[in-house]
Design a protein around this nucleic acid. Structure first.
Lengths: 239, 239
DNA sequence: CGACCCTTGTGAGCGTGTGAACAAGCGGCG
DNA sequence: CGCCGCTTGTTCACACGCTCACAAGGGTCG
């Protein structure tokens, strides 16, 4: 109970966690340029957020800044990496080697940022055995063995929607407790498993919503402004 | 003033907008199964959200449900599609035909969901002229012509980080006002341009953070549980 | 050594998002 | 024709996140 967990127990808001990687990227950039300190204002500008938000976010990590000066880039970089768990690599397995899985397997950014791809799995016998980016695709049923050999921490699901839940279950059974889901479907996982999703079509639909609003507003403006005529919105395809 | 904008003026919260596509997907699924009505509870379960939230979200679109019965699937589907601007296709251009751009160009889900890929552009002469998924890659400087020919509404940036801002500027200059950015960098765009981003490495880093916390908690449990020895949390990295 | 400048860290106010609870209202059944 | 069960639509309270504003405090220069 009365444990001295002062350092770790600091609960970091989810919204802040999602921004830490942005700061990290900016810091790396700044470090490469040789700057040794950085102000919250500059860091905010580079990361595309508000300066006050930056300061508050960083304050959750601890008081690593110096008033009147700013933050020591190297030190902050170290602390943030530690907090994000980036002091060592996390091995990744990609499940589903179709178009997207293929591209992800070839994406160099993962390894560069500390997420080397340790294994590729699929269920389709036509794909199994093929080599992508130097890694041989194995059958998904071998996951337990693979997870035992390598220390797999994160699973990426790039299968069709129908197969995703089954694959997730297999990943979890093999001990993977962090999953990034690209399949356009809702996955249900135990509460101790972290799940994030990236749905490309959903992103486009959200953009579509706002685009729709924008063009609708334009039409209204065009109709009301010049004539003031009765508002009978002409069908969209009048271009 | 006294225009009949009651229908459109309802301001829909951003969080709700982001969920509408999920509902839409569930509705399509339900419609395929032949169900004609659906309750908020079932829709919630399928979409992985809270039932009260579903009802509130749908209420922003209007009162399209029937008490005691539920929502008419077809009708709700229509209203939601209309609201999301999915009654017609939106043409998409993909900029940057590397690994990821290639995969995106081949992804059938875009066309299926009403986002046909109208053009592919790149700056690398070695890529220009090649045909991906039936579409010839053209030079990015031709964007104005391409945008004039096709009605391009949405641009997807799949270039390296360094090129992204320049590409975004070109897209915007060509009249594209909705952008989905896959490049790991912060883009600055005019306020009338919608911008969403998908950063794969960031997603993994967020997962890494929580994974880190989980394993750290496990270590603490292992230390405290068996012996009950004095809790002197071994400093993570003996600073 | 003291005054001043600069930037951090944080407290308060505000808006948005969430979840529970409940009245309103529709359909079916006796 | 009236009652009853079911589901919506909405209200309320609360939690969370964001922004502003400012005191606290380190560094620097005269």
């Amino acid at each position: 109970m009365a444990d001295g967990d002062k350092r770790q127990a600091r609960r970091i808001p989810e919204a802040t966690v999602a921004r830490l990687p942005l700061y990290l990227r900016s810091l790396v950039e700044v470090a490469d340029e040789g700057m040794s300190t950085i102000s919250s204002e500059r860091l905010a500008e580079m990361s595309g957020v508000n300066a006050a938000k930056v300061r508050k976010d960083l304050s959750y990590l601890g008081s690593y800044g110096t008033r009147g000066v700013g933050y020591d880039v190297e030190y902050l970089l170290f602390q943030m990496s530690r907090e994000l768990g980036l002091t060592h690599d996390w091995h990744v397995v990609i499940a589903g080697i179709g178009n997207l899985g293929h591209a992800l397997a070839n994406y160099a950014g993962f390894r560069e940022r500390g997420f080397p791809i340790a294994a590729l799995v699929d269920a389709d016998p036509r794909v199994i055995g093929s080599v992508v980016n130097g890694i041989t695709v194995r059958h998904i049923d071998e996951l337990p063995d693979i997870a035992a050999d390598q220390q797999i921490s994160i699973g990426i699901i790039a299968t069709p929607a129908g197969a995703a839940q089954g694959v997730a279950d297999q990943l979890i059974a093999a001990g993977v407790s962090s999953i990034l889901n690209f399949a356009p479907t809702v996955l249900t996982v135990p509460p101790d498993v972290s799940l994030r999703k990236v749905d490309l079509a959903v992103e486009l639909q959200i953009l579509s919503f706002y685009q729709q609003r924008k063009t609708a507003a334009q039409r209204v403006a065009q109709i009301t402004a010049p004539t003031g005529a009765t508002v009978a919105p002409p069908p969209p395809a009048a271009s």
